[in-house]
Simulated scan of single mutants.
Amino acid sequence: MKVAYIRTSTKEQNLDRQIHAVKKENVDKIFSEQLSGKDTKREKFQEMMSYVRSGDEVVIASLDRLGRDYSDIKETVRILQERDVRLTVLDAPFLHFNTGNKTLDKAMSDMFISLLGYIAQNEREKILERQKQGIIQAKLRGVYKGRPLKYHAQAKNPKDKLVFLNVSHQLEREIPIRQIARENGISKSTVYEIKKRIEEGVSSHG
């Protein structure tokens, strides 16, 4: 089987470019999700990892689609290699060595994957640092207000307020996050964000 895994960090981003790229590889199945790659606790990613078997091939548009953490990328690649699952990275065709020596091919591939994983994480850290510095400068100029909250106790929209109150009540009853998200028509990340604000004692905007 040839399967593809595609991911964007947010639902606002479009999956079309990745879908178009992997379909050119004649994949049999596509696992897709729109979720941060901060760790490997992603539903479709875990489904894909459980699905592949020895002799299969996993196709990804770029190495950072597996995740944004250097150690997570290396661990994922190691697991795939142990299962004898080939990894094809579309924007890094030079990773596919064919010297005739399997041990040498693997060693060279490992070296380049480690390097690319480090570069991906380093670039991510630089972006975060630039964002942090930009926020600091905006705050100093008094122009940074942050992203407005949608669900909170003083929300102008009655529906948004009701969602917040319902989520708060369900969290108190220790209902599973997935169930809360489904019943309120919101994402799990939104439930976690509300939960964090409640725990920090910040239940309303501002």
Score class of each variant (00 low, 15 high):
169 H>D: 13
71 S>P: 00
200 E>G: 02
13 Q>W: 09
134 G>S: 12
193 E>P: 00
54 S>F: 00
152 H>Q: 07
16 D>S: 15
11 K>Q: 14
105 D>Q: 07
127 I>S: 06
38 K>Q: 09
67 G>R: 00
87 L>E: 05
155 A>H: 03
157 N>C: 15
127 I>A: 10
49 M>N: 10
62 S>W: 01
15 L>E: 10
164 F>K: 04
25 E>L: 06
72 D>P: 00
168 S>R: 15
67 G>T: 03
43 E>H: 15
153 A>F: 12
76 T>P: 00
150 K>E: 04
188 K>Y: 08
198 I>D: 02
162 L>N: 07
38 K>M: 06
20 H>E: 10
162 L>M: 11
72 D>V: 00
129 E>A: 11
76 T>C: 01
184 N>I: 05
30 I>F: 09
159 K>S: 09
81 Q>L: 01
84 D>A: 07
4 A>Q: 07
94 F>K: 10
13 Q>M: 11
155 A>G: 06
186 I>H: 06
167 V>Q: 02
96 H>T: 03
103 T>E: 14
104 L>Y: 15
3 V>W: 03
182 R>D: 03
129 E>N: 08
40 T>W: 06
140 L>S: 09
88 T>C: 02
106 K>M: 06
86 R>T: 13
8 T>M: 14
189 S>D: 08
148 P>W: 14
175 I>E: 08
191 V>P: 00
36 S>Y: 11
55 G>H: 09
60 I>K: 04
80 L>K: 00
114 S>E: 15
79 I>C: 05
193 E>L: 13
64 D>G: 08
137 Q>R: 13
49 M>K: 09
171 L>V: 03
51 Y>I: 01
148 P>R: 15
80 L>S: 01
22 V>G: 07
199 E>M: 12
40 T>Q: 10
82 E>R: 03
91 D>Y: 10
59 V>T: 03
139 K>I: 01
159 K>L: 15
118 Y>Q: 12
88 T>V: 14
117 G>T: 00
18 Q>N: 06
19 I>Y: 11
12 E>M: 10
77 V>A: 04
166 N>I: 02
156 K>P: 11
127 I>H: 06
189 S>E: 10
30 I>C: 05
206 G>K: 14
145 K>L: 02
49 M>G: 03
148 P>A: 09
